[in-house]
Design a binder for these strands. Structure first.
Length: 840
RNA sequence: GCUCGAGUGGCGGAAUUGGUAGACGCGCUGGAUUCAAAAUCCAGUGUUUUAGGACGUGCGGGUUCGAUUCCCGCCUCGAGUACCA
């Protein structure tokens, strides 16, 4: 009934609170340099992931998506998908489920109640104060007149602190008393209410009940502000730190909870809270709703116009809405997003079309939303689009297509998307599933984190010098100098400061890695004065110093100490033996033009190497094109696979590439075995040996592909080709299937061989060879014979004989007697087909 | 700090449910071929040794006939996360 009386605006306002995507005033991460808000995962160490610009907290009206509504299902769904454990763990942590209770504390002499969330409701009798986040709504309402000034000052100070500062400074404890007291829901005691920035506004209710005896942060706060620390744990020592061991907890000094352990007490107190109507059991999530607006041009425009300030959706049949033309893709002078520059960006509700802004009358023509959607609006579900072919223009994908393809079978991608894209996409697919749009509720069935190929950076070392006054001013002498003393002091001081600031001395001298190690190890280079000049090595530096700077070395007034900083050199200027091309380095950038180099005696200058992410800024990028030109794309592809397991990160090192290249040459030769190395295959049937090699390889490669273990199949191919070459195999029956087996690994060479074998269609559509066990059946086994677990010799025995026969064959063998040295074996372990172990 | 992962020759890395540790490749050594080099081919290559062996999968224990593999404790490195009440 009440609903019908609301105005349209009021109704919309209420509905927004329940919508999946909603407009709300939220505290966002604003990056002034980028002119946009950033999602939590777009911020790394307090600065923007892109560009590294500072990020500040700011309240803005933004579209958000109610990710939190799916928190539990996002957690539960992890059990159903085949993803790496670390990735699941990081999503679990990000969602951050914690079980506990909410408790309401009444503020004395007022109507206000402060709800708190706690994971330890069992410790409620240990509460000795409460702390609110400085941003908490009630702060201004409950603060007493006496405390008003102090509280306001504190709130203002914390608001100014950036996220980064807060993160950097977790040690210092700050807070202010509000003057207000809350009432303990069971004892009725007065509890002082404080504010402090260790309580986060965005988590839980933005307020905590502080139990200093059981929580280290509360404990530290209490110690710092001299607040009482009542002990409610039996036999717990809380003189040094809080006692937070749940398992061993026995509650005491807690009325009806006395003598109970953690789980008993928790159950009982929640029942009591609910009975009293002051609290209830609750599950809380760390996950926050995701901000869905971006102030950029390149993004999907929201199909939203504004009527009386309330968002309205454009009818579905009028979609898609296309980005308007703008002059520049930058924010407007007024700080509006780039779409604020568009002239034709208004919605006519009568004609259902985008019209000129001039026509906005707020009756039938309304302004359109200026924000655009973030990248994950598309990246969360684009793959469904690929499933459809014919009806792409009618629907995003037809039901038939969606039912056939279901979800993505395998996703290979980096773990950096763990708490961003991969979480959003799961969320997105879940709500699409709920709306009946897709048949699945998880986007990616199996996921593999491929290892990153890293770069090997090269470093040269730039000398630094620090000059200090070694002449300690003699106070008495200065006193006698009268006016002169100030001058002298000033001279020393200015010279010192100047040099430190400019650091001109030796600043253009570069040393190699060996010299750098010596500098670090020896003391020669700190506190250098004239007396050191006999040292040859120091001389090498001395002659490079400009004449006008030499005074710092020639007098005892200064002491000079050296150090060296590593700076990146471009890896293209360094050879395989880590030697730098000095001339190339000098010409690389203007500041190195006049650089001086301290080289080894033979003139060689070595760099140091360090494995880092490949990046332009680290000058360690290698271009695969060079490898392709030299060895071909097949070699490059196979070498990448051969380097090691798919999931493992590894530095790009081409040292072993000749091995793979040599293998491909051998493979080629296998098909070119006639005179003058021309193509030849025989139509004769293959030998038993040939077939054994082939089928062994089919089996291994098939298993490897299923396990994504590509490095081991490359080595099986090498073994196969080595064996077949030794067998002089040239049979079509073997060489054809071999070409197919290898075609996913070395597609170009395989395709060419396939053609030479007389096929007109691509090898990529040839059926995978069928493994047949019969070619691998052995009649004998080379048994390892062990004594006390150590293998001593091997013995070939038929596989179809009994344990007893094996034992007698082994025990009568001459070597057995030799290794037993006359002892009688205590026990003989025989595992048929595996091993024989003689104990004794 | 917490969570997760990984430690094997000079190097990249193999090793199925506990069953011959070091496959395969690089590098290195020696040899063949060559006027020479490249390329190719052959042999050797964990350490140590009194040449019988002994020791070897980060370290210390344990289970077992037998452990790179399973269990307990520690060390080192890497990744993620960070006042989450």
């Amino acid at each position: 009934m009440e609903w019908l009386d609301f105005s349209e605006t009021e109704k919309q306002e209420i509905l927004l609170k329940y919508r999946l995507t909603y407009l709300a005033e939220t505290e966002v991460n604003w990056c002034p340099q980028l002119g946009t808000v950033l999602a939590n995962d777009e911020i790394v160490n307090g600065v923007s992931e892109r560009g590294g610009y500072p990020v500040i907290r700011k309240k803005m009206k933004q579209w958000s998506m109610r990710l939190t509504a799916y928190a539990q299902r996002l957690l539960d769904g992890l059990d159903k998908i085949d993803w790496p454990q670390p990735l699941k763990d990081s999503q679990t942590n990000w969602i951050g489920r914690s079980k506990g209770a909410t408790v309401e504390f009444k503020i004395q002499n007022s109507e206000f109640r402060i709800p708190v969330f706690t994971t330890r409701p069992d410790t409620i009798f240990g509460v000795s104060f409460m702390v609110l986040a400085p941003e908490h709504d009630l702060v201004s309402k409950i603060t007493t007149a006496e405390q008003k000034e102090a509280v306001e000052k504190y709130v203002e100070a914390t608001a100014k602190r950036s996220e980064r500062e807060r993160m950097a400074d977790v040690k210092s404890i700050t807070g202010v008393f509000t003057g207000a007291y809350a009432e303990h829901p069971f004892t009725g005691d007065s509890i002082p209410v404080w504010i402090g920035d260790y309580v986060l506004a965005g988590y839980g209710t933005g307020a905590v009940m502080s139990v200093p005896c059981g929580d280290q942060r509360d404990y530290d706060f209490a110690k710092h502000f001299n607040l009482p620390i009542p002990n409610i744990f039996k036999d717990a020592d809380i003189s040094e730190e809080a006692y937070s061991d749940k398992e061993k907890t026995i509650i005491t000094n807690s009325d009806f909870l006395n003598g109970l352990n953690y789980s008993e007490a928790t159950e009982k107190i929640i029942a009591a809270l609910e009975e009293k109507g002051v609290g209830k059991g609750k599950i809380n999530y760390r996950l926050r709703d995701a901000v869905f607006s971006r102030q950029r041009y390149w993004g999907e425009p929201f199909p939203i116009y504004y009527k009386d300030g309330m968002p309205q959706t454009i009818p579905t049949e009028c979609l898609p809405l296309r980005l308007p033309e703008v002059e520049k893709y930058l924010p407007t002078e007024e700080g509006e997003p780039p779409l604020g520059r568009a002239d034709v960006w208004a919605w006519n509700t009568e004609t259902n079309e985008v019209v000129s802004n001039d026509l906005i009358d707020h009756k039938t023509v309304f302004p359109l939303e200026l924000n655009t959607m973030p990248g994950w609006a598309g990246s969360s579900w684009y793959f469904f689009r690929y499933m459809e072919d014919e009806k792409r223009d009618e629907v995003f994908a037809s039901k038939e297509a969606l039912d056939y393809w279901k979800n993505v079978d395998l996703y290979i991608g980096g773990s950096e998307h763990a708490t961003g894209h991969l979480l959003y996409s799961r969320f997105w697919v879940k709500f699409m599933h709920d709306r009946g749009l897709v048949p699945v509720d998880e986007p990616f069935k199996k996921l593999i984190n491929q290892g990153m190929i890293l770069g090997e950076s090269a470093f040269v070392y730039r000398m630094n010098s620090k000059i200090t006054i070694s002449e300690i001013p003699d106070v008495k002498k200065f006193a006698q100098m009268g006016d002169e003393w100030a001058k002298e002091l000033k001279r020393l001081f200015i010279k010192n400061v100047e040099l430190k600031a400019n650091n001109i001395l030796l600043s253009n001298i570069y040393v190699d890695y060996n010299e750098y190690k010596r500098i670090k190890k020896e003391k020669d280079f700190s506190d250098i004065t004239m007396k050191d000049w006999e040292n040859d090595r120091i001389q090498a530096y001395y002659h490079l110093i400009p004449e006008n700077e030499k005074e710092f070395f020639d007098t005892d007034k200064y002491s000079v100490s050296f150090s060296a900083d590593g700076i990146h050199a471009d890896v293209t200027m360094v050879n395989n033996s880590n030697e730098l091309e000095i001339e190339a380095f000098k010409n690389w950038r203007p500041e190195f033009k006049d650089a001086e180099f301290i080289t080894e005696e033979n003139g060689i200058f070595k760099v140091s190497r360090e494995v880092e992410k490949m990046s332009k800024s680290k000058y360690n990028v290698v271009n695969p094109d060079d490898i392709c030109n030299q060895y071909g794309a097949d070699t490059l592809r196979m070498y990448e696979m051969f380097l090691g397991p798919l999931e493992q990160a590894k530095p790009w090192n081409t040292a072993g590439i000749t091995g793979v290249h040599g293998f491909l040459k051998k493979l080629w030769k296998l098909y070119h075995s006639s005179e003058n190395e021309s193509f030849y295959v025989s139509e004769d049937s293959a030998s038993k040996e040939n077939l054994k090699t082939l089928h062994k390889t089919i089996k291994k490669v098939q298993e490897d592909i299923e396990n994504f273990s590509f490095n081991t199949s490359v080595s099986s191919f090498m073994i196969a080709v080595n064996e077949l070459s030794a067998q002089k195999c040239n049979s079509r029956d073997v060489l054809e299937p071999l070409a197919i087996l290898i075609s996913p690994y070395a597609p170009h060479i395989a395709e060419e061989l396939w053609q030479k074998l007389g096929h007109s269609e691509s090898i990529s559509i040839a059926p995978f060879p069928k493994f047949e066990e019969k070619y691998l059946v052995e009649s004998t086994k080379e048994y390892p014979i062990s004594f006390n677990g150590k293998m001593r010799f091997t013995l070939e025995l038929p596989l179809d004989i009994s344990k007893e026969e094996i034992e007698s064959a082994v025990m009568t063998h001459e070597k057995t007697a030799q290794y037993l040295e006359g002892r009688t074996p205590k026990k003989v372990i025989i595992v048929p087909g595996k091993i024989v172990n003689i104990v004794g």
